[in-house]
Design a protein around this nucleic acid. Structure first.
Lengths: 209, 209
DNA sequence: TAGATTGTTAATCGATTAACAATC
DNA sequence: TAGATTGTTAATCGATTAACAATC
């Protein structure tokens, strides 16, 4: 029950459960069993029950889980009951697409400031925000106590930008740059690299010819 | 040694090894030990050696791994010795950013056709390709024997588009839509959802208060 | 009540690590 | 040769699953 001891792999499944529940709620469903949820996600019912049991008892025997209640509990566990402000660094095509991503707010995040270092981009408006010079990033992060950043700069600028983010007080970085970055161990980094996922999938393809 | 029996989790690490090796090669390094590679990736040296041993003996005692040779072996194992043609569905902001992603080709993939269903987008040129009506997708996929697709459509169109892709003969889908899709078991799907990764990271943040 | 499903225990399964002989 | 590092074995560690009493 001690949240400090919950395995990473269990935590990593909770957002996936939450996403499925959000969808079911939208469709008007009120209750779901671990079996039915597992069928949707290709996960065993036992695993779902075990995962949830790390955090409390959220279901009812004979009935299953009340979706609205379980959503609220998972949001609480995942720390997304409120909305985290997020800074986005790098306003190229990918950064702009992310700035306009519609679902962040409902999932607990809101991009509140955009940064770049290209003079011709600074001052431009994207998603109703003015792109700022990255030299102002530390003061914005400190003033607004921002803990979460999205890194969407080119590979060549990734490590330097990551250093600035960490120095400014950022604690979690979602890294879209196609390169690994080094950060102190207390900083959480999640790397999103389409080439890595494509290569993983191509392993399972039969070779052409 | 039988590749059919290699655990998924081992395969999923190979692209990460390859990315690190590519970087080292660019920096001019010729040889690396499992220890040094592991230090960079926060993975134990034993795990790296064990993972690689599923596929062959690629190192030399006392020396380590010749980077160029190990890159070539990993590319072979991952099935990216040649370049896979890829179709991209959904030419919104995210799709356009992906169409211009510079590193696909060197990693073994090339986007060769863009599709959308919005009449005002069809005919437009993005990344030197003409956006085509999604009704032509099946013939393009069949003619060119395309096996890999990127799904960058809105959530509301994701399942329908996935059905079209599968029906056309696609075997691997990289799904950027913020919704789970159902496909037959022989199709490989990898889901990239920034909200999922952000929520996973927020678990480790101290709550604001 | 009868049927269904949870939460939990114990067993199983699989992945990681430590250690070292082999050998470059 | 001496030092370094692999590939592999066996031990450890941890995650998943099966099963079922509890109970809605």
């Amino acid at each position: 029950m001690d949240a400090n001891k919950v395995p990473d792999i269990v935590v990593s499944r909770l957002p996936i459960y939450l996403r499925a529940l959000n969808r079911l709620a939208e469709e008007g469903q009120k209750v779901i069993s671990s079996q039915a949820l597992g069928d949707q996600l290709s996960i065993s019912s036992a695993q779902i029950r075990k995962d949830l049991s790390h955090f409390g008892e959220f279901g009812k025997q004979g009935t299953g889980y009340v979706i609205e209640y379980l959503q609220a509990q998972l949001r609480r566990v995942l720390n997304v009951e409120t909305v985290w402000p997020v800074v986005l660094t790098g306003c190229g095509a990918l950064g702009r697409a992310l700035a306009n991503y519609p679902d962040f707010h409902s999932e607990g995040f809101e991009i509140v400031a955009l940064f770049d270092n290209a003079p011709h981009k600074i001052g431009e408006t994207v998603a109703n925000m003015c792109i700022q010079d990255v030299v102002h990033l530390p003061e914005v992060v400190r003033e607004r106590e921002i803990k979460v950043a999205i890194l969407a700069v080119p590979a060549s600028a990734a490590q330097k930008t990551a250093d600035i983010l960490v120095e400014a007080g950022i604690r979690a970085i979602l890294n879209y740059a196609p390169i690994s970055i080094s950060v102190p161990p207390e900083i959480t980094v999640q790397h999103i690299d389409p080439a890595v996922y494509l290569q993983w999938m191509s392993y399972y393809l039969e070779s052409p010819d």
